[in-house]
Design a protein around this nucleic acid. Structure first.
Lengths: 133, 133
DNA sequence: CTGGATCCCAGATGATACTG
DNA sequence: CAGTATCATCTGGGATCCAG
């Protein structure tokens, strides 16, 4: 009963303008955050390795993304005090849980990519829906 | 065997710079696309109803998002030829499948929101990690 | 009512150079 | 190596006006 009620309430929260979850969602589904989660799936990586792994990300963006994700508790950062610097990143339990959900979406997307592209090309074929009397 | 191999291959695709799925993912996880999917979960809505449902979205963004999502085959648009105009939107089977994955992520997020916020505030408390000799 | 067209700004992102 | 700082750019997104 209470659970059902909660689900009803929760369902609408994200649709609410001032739902605080929106901001977190934004960080979670940001262009690079998604890829960081996937890249770190059961793996610990250093900054540069992570950067090589995630094609196209700049140093700046990766650093910023990692900072945000650490702030939110999705990843853990370990800096060894040596020279040259050695820093490792890995998913926290929270990050793992998030990654599972992200992975479901990502896997589905890659498996159904062709369906989407077919649809899109079909749409492109008939750019305007002119209704000639 | 082949399946395992495929999973290996697929796992890396999104991490590849020129993976075409990235663009679709971008549309799928865009600020408003997510909310449109959730709002249309087992429901058919008109433009203005949808707009009221999704707090904070502008006409422009909603229209644009809906166009993209129809292009990709996630939603279906039915325009009745009457005046004033009457247009309805609902999820396609493809859209439903996507929505399921999105919903999993969204529900998890709302359920674990407090965990994240605690972490974030803890991080804010110690802005810089100065290591005093 | 359902958008399209335009203008404009803030924030996201990239490129490059620099530092401990 | 692992970033930060700076500057330039590009894009998302809001506001507004207009039309079928």
């Amino acid at each position: 009963m209470t659970k059902l009620l909660n689900e009803r309430l929760k369902k609408g929260e994200l649709l609410n303008v001032d739902c605080p979850s929106r901001e977190v969602l934004k960080r979670l589904t940001g262009r690079w955050s998604l890829l960081v989660l996937i890249a770190l799936r059961d793996e610990t990586l250093r900054f540069s390795a992570l950067r090589r792994r995630i094609g196209g990300v700049s140093e700046r963006m990766l650093a910023q993304t990692l900072r945000y994700m650490e702030e939110d508790g999705f990843i853990s950062r370990i800096a060894y005090d040596v020279v040259p610097p050695h820093v490792e990143y890995h998913l926290t339990p929270l990050g793992c849980e998030a990654e599972e959900r992200i992975a479901l979406l990502a896997d589905w997307l890659e498996n159904n990519f062709s369906r989407i592209m077919e649809k899109r090309q079909a749409s492109a074929a008939r750019p305007v829906v002119n209704k000639p009397l």
